[in-house]
């Protein structure tokens, strides 16, 4: 985890999540982008984090596996049939 970073890389790393989340102002974004043009290690890290975050978001939008979904649907139908009727 320790990347043995120089101060400039350290400052970049501290702001990288805020940068990726779009929480930094234009000046701070420019500084990070300038740094990444000159520092391949930081640029690689930024790209890697972006890919990781993308994979997480993709996984979060995956629908339930169909058999699980069918069981969930059946549970809902049983519950609504047993409990007080709800208006359609």
């Amino acid at each position: 985890m320790n990347m043995d970073v120089n101060p400039e890389c350290g400052a970049m790393l501290a702001g990288i999540s805020a940068y990726l989340d779009g929480d930094l102002d234009a000046t701070a974004c420019d500084a990070i982008e300038r740094h990444c043009r000159d520092c391949s290690r930081c640029a690689t890290l930024v790209d890697g984090l972006r890919e990781t975050i993308g994979l997480c978001r993709e996984a979060g939008s995956a629908p339930l596996p169909e058999p699980v979904r069918q069981r969930a649907k059946a549970s809902i139908e049983r519950l609504l049939a047993c409990e007080n009727p709800i208006r359609s």
Binding site: L20, G22, I32, A43, V46, R50, I53
Partner: peptide
């Protein structure tokens, strides 16, 4: 190397 920010779904 050019970097681009994420298309942020938040907030």
């Amino acid at each position: 190397m050019s970097v681009t920010k994420l298309e942020n779904p938040n907030p």
